[in-house]
Design a protein around this nucleic acid. Sequence first.
RNA 1: GGCCCCUUCGUCUAGUCUGGUCUAGGACACUAGGUUUUCAUCCUAGUAACACGGGUUCAAAUCCCGUAGGGGUCACCA
Length: 515
Amino acid sequence: MTAKKVVTRFAPSPTGNLHIGGARTALFAWAFARQNGGQLILRLEDTDLARSSPESTKSVIRDLLWLGLEWDQGPAPTTDPGVDPYARDIQIGDKGPYFQSQRHEDGIYDVLIQKLLDSGQAYEDEDAVRFRMDKDIAFDDVVYGRIEIKADDLEDFIIRKGEKGGRLPTFHFAVTVDDALMEVTHVIRGQEHLTNTPKHAALCDAMGFDRPQWVHLPSIMNADGSKMSKRDKAKAARKAANDADLQPADDNMAAFNAKDNDDTDIANAIAEALGLSLPEIEVADFKRSGYLQHVLLNYIALLGWNPGDGTERFDLDFLIKHFGYDRIGKSNSQFDRTKLAKFNAEALAEMPADKFHELLLAHCKAYHLDFLDKIGEANFQTFAGMYQARSQTLNTPTEMGRFFVCDDDAIEYNAKAVKKNLTKSDGEGLNVLKQFRDELNGCDDWTGDTLHALIESFTEKHQLKNMGSIAQPLRVALTGNAVSPEIGPTLELLGKQTVLNRIDRCLKTITTDSD
RNA sequence: GGCCCCUUCGUCUAGUCUGGUCUAGGACACUAGGUUUUCAUCCUAGUAACACGGGUUCAAAUCCCGUAGGGGUCACCA
């Protein structure tokens, strides 16, 4: 007997954006299929009419494609807005359709339910259909081992909803049937399904299907130990909205504020209005925050799995080569954004400068148009260059470099920085700044190199301690703070007029008496 | 609450199956020092864990039992 060809599947319900935990499940299913020359199926479990939406389907497809996890069967792998992923003729694979709502239309489930009814293994309960669970049941999970459940702890459960549920099959029934009919060999999913699995095993047995291999993955948790969920975003947004006394824009938002729903779109809208960042939970959040897809995949692969030889930084080829269920842990893990950020920072620092430039430009085009407008594409390379080594994410330059785009008189001076670099020792810094202002004013070749040389020669001429004696007062005048990238490129990018304006304003605003 | 699962540094983990090589290793974080015009980077050093209690054994992080803690699940949600 030859081993069956490996078939894995990722089967999200289209009720929102792709969650980070779902991304890890998809990643492992993808890697295992690729490792074994098998296939990955993308199937949409949309049997809950009320919660499923085409928008969610599209966003799941978008996010999976962004991550680079392509499937062999399922909806057409495209984000083209002109393409309807539900269209049957463009779905790929010969086991379709790949939407459970469509499979229901085709009568796939009803035939099998009728058989169970006829054989007495299921019975009608009001207008629903219930499956009998009257025997002890055991199954083997690849990660958790053998699980045995006594009949007394099992209850008959609904396999087909009644009228109010549209007579659709329930999740338990549909997954079992679809996995069997699509010849899925390995069911990889979150650990929350472990206690559902006896139901699926019993259903397989009752319908004469071979049981698949079940692979349950431990959960991904927040730093406080709670489960990472989109409710975290809602909670954070709600709190911010309350603190800021934000008036609800519409009924939806009012319901959101009253905790009647946890809509992440509303959460995002509030965050945008208030200019705050919510905890990243969904793949799209990480994208927006400026994480690279391969870094994100690398990091989440490490949550619950490791190659065993200490390697932590790896790419997808490595994962395909080394992935194995025997090295998946059983305990839940907390998501550590700091470690992710470090991984991301390293990846950004390592890449060629033009690659970083290209990515940052694309990121700003998508999320930070104000920077693009103010800095201009011509100067963008300089901007990218000065932040590459200091960036944790593609958002770092726009966070740290806020001063590049703000108005000259919007600079707020940090008191500590002012004292240390300007007013201390009878305004030593202010004096240097005043003198150097004239040097700058006389400079005709406004480039980073020339300006750097100007600072150096000025330092020597006036026998100052080091470049910092000028650079630091300049930083405070230009940014309000004692921190900026190298001073030469900073001056260049700000431009002569802005630099002089800000120095003048600083000299006018800050005096030794104000201290 | 019933049932199921889990428990090594703050966090992710190696080691557990096949007890001795573990005075428990790595990474991120943290602390100290160094390099640097600031910040970041980088370099060096350091702090820090086998949940608890019993048992088995010459020997236990590793095997057994119990306790505690955490998670999941008990829907016509998935």
